[in-house]
Simulated scan of single mutants.
Amino acid sequence: MIDDEELFAADLIGRRLLKLTTAWHHHADDDPSLVHLWLHLEGLGPVLFHTPSTGVSLRPDRPHGPYSMEEYGSVSVIDDSPDVPVTRFVGQVIRSVRQIDYNDGRVSFTAGLTLQFPKGSIRLLGLVDDLLIAHDQPLGAVEAHLHEDVTLARVVQTSVGCPLQWDAWTTTGQCLYLRYRHGEGTVEQHPSEDVDTWDGEESRLWTSWDDGTNGGWIDLNDFLATAGLLLAPEAEVHTTPPIDLKA
């Protein structure tokens, strides 16, 4: 892969986090601020997360050394910094990468990404220039303006055999395809439930995991919890009883 080539969020799914490198801006007496984060991913190499303006951009890139910024201070580069919550996910596989949107009624933009691992998740946000926020806790008043499209308004089960399959729609109208087979679960985004529309740019992988069971059945609620999806309080759910293979 060529340096400076932008990566898609789906490129990270299924990759194991091997280590991380951080770059911190030091200026005057202020606390250091996080400006760059490299996630070293199995089979992909180091991936740079940075904020070219607002939001988060990612591309393949090798960490550089520390440097001075004259009157703007200096930047230090540290391997496996304990000050970043993502450190606790080293050794785990990225299960899903979800977009985070910001909208305060005046300005709206893609603010960052949520990376979900088997044992938790981390948000990487770019809300202002050159400042990356890596956080796994609420951020106060700004939380009211952050949104992830993970709440389902409608779910229709389309297969009870192997694989289990559901079509689902989020509260914003996004169409998702949910699938579980041999212990492997996936969530895909598509323009509609019509499979003839699934080959275009609007289709992409949202989530993928292997629970190690090689099983053929999973309860819908368990599937949604593992995939990081939620049912809206008044969600419309149509399911079919499982087939009894012993009958």
Rank of each mutant, 00 (worst) to 15 (best):
L127A: 12
L127E: 12
L127K: 15
V128Q: 15
V128F: 10
V128K: 14
V128W: 11
D129M: 11
D130F: 04
D130W: 06
L131A: 13
L131D: 12
L132P: 11
I133V: 15
I133C: 13
I133S: 14
I133L: 15
A134I: 09
A134D: 09
A134C: 15
A134L: 10
H135A: 14
H135L: 04
H135M: 06
H135C: 13
D136I: 05
D136N: 10
Q137K: 15
Q137R: 15
Q137W: 03
Q137P: 01
P138K: 13
P138I: 11
P138E: 08
P138V: 08
L139F: 07
L139A: 15
L139D: 11
G140W: 07
G140P: 10
V142H: 05
V142C: 03
E143C: 03
A144G: 00
H145G: 07
L146A: 05
H147I: 05
H147E: 13
E148G: 08
E148C: 10
D149C: 02
D149L: 03
D149W: 02
D149I: 00
V150E: 10
V150I: 14
V150W: 07
T151C: 09
T151R: 09
L152A: 07
L152D: 05
L152K: 09
L152I: 07
L152C: 04
A153I: 07
A153M: 12
R154Y: 12
R154M: 13
R154Q: 14
R154A: 15
V155Y: 06
V155P: 04
V156Y: 08
V156D: 06
Q157Y: 08
T158R: 14
T158L: 11
T158P: 05
T158Y: 06
S159N: 14
S159K: 10
S159W: 02
S159I: 05
S159M: 04
V160T: 14
V160H: 13
V160R: 15
V160E: 13
G161T: 03
G161V: 00
P163T: 01
P163D: 03
L164I: 04
L164W: 07
W166N: 13
W166G: 12
D167C: 08
D167Q: 14
D167T: 10
D167F: 14
A168T: 06
W169K: 04
W169G: 05
T171M: 07
T171L: 04
T171Q: 11
T171P: 06
T172M: 01
G173Y: 01
Q174A: 01
C175I: 02
C175W: 07
C175A: 10
C175D: 00
L176H: 00
L176I: 06
L176A: 03
Y177C: 05
Y177A: 09
Y177G: 04
L178C: 08
L178W: 05
Y180L: 07
Y180S: 05
Y180D: 05
Y180H: 09
R181Q: 01
R181E: 00
R181C: 01
H182C: 02
H182M: 06
H182Q: 09
H182I: 02
H182Y: 08
H182P: 00
